[in-house]
Amino acid sequence: MTRLWGIVLNWIAVGLAEDIPVGTVVPRRVDGLDLAIWRSGLGRFHAWDDRCPHRGMRLSHGFVRGEVLACVYHGWQYNLDGACDYIPAHPDLTPPKTICANTYVCETRNQALWVALGTVNGDVPDIGDRIPIRSLDISCGAPAIARYFDHPQDPLIVLRGKYDLAIALQPSTSRSCFAHVFAGAGQDKKIVSRYVEKLRDELEAA
């Protein structure tokens, strides 16, 4: 569980599955905590601290080779459990088990990607049969956004106005969010995308 905005959150949205293709890694920030989210060759998602235990380099700058994530600085490779299993400077060495990236639980459901920063408690939120539109940053704190829509501070803000929208807010910092937007099937993606940009302009101006 994670305490954010004065409430307890079990799951925090960190993106759309289609934005993180197989074999890639991206950075995400949750309440100031930097995460590296990566997808292995077989398609599994992983969420780790964005920091290589060797020299503190951001793992999100690294590269995926099959089922390992490698740090770009010295090429240290970490397996699916987060354990370092290869150090290129010492190819014959079996790295000690203590060299390990800090890992979090990461789940996908209906193309939405969620992480649990603490103990997993409860199901991953359900966006229903909506389709992913896009993720966009908003220079506004999450409470201000919920207030603007007159919506409770839930992991998922569901709007049933002009468009059927579900917005999962990733609170990056106290003053910014990464908003992951889903829309009811059958709606034009471009029109919805432009509509949420307009919403962003309104929020940032408010």
Binding site: D34, D50, R51, R55, G56, M57, R58, H61, V72, Y73
Partner: peptide, 9 residues
């Protein structure tokens, strides 16, 4: 340089 600006801390 891009390494040095991305080491934590």
């Amino acid at each position: 340089r891009s390494i040095l600006e991305n080491q934590i801390p």
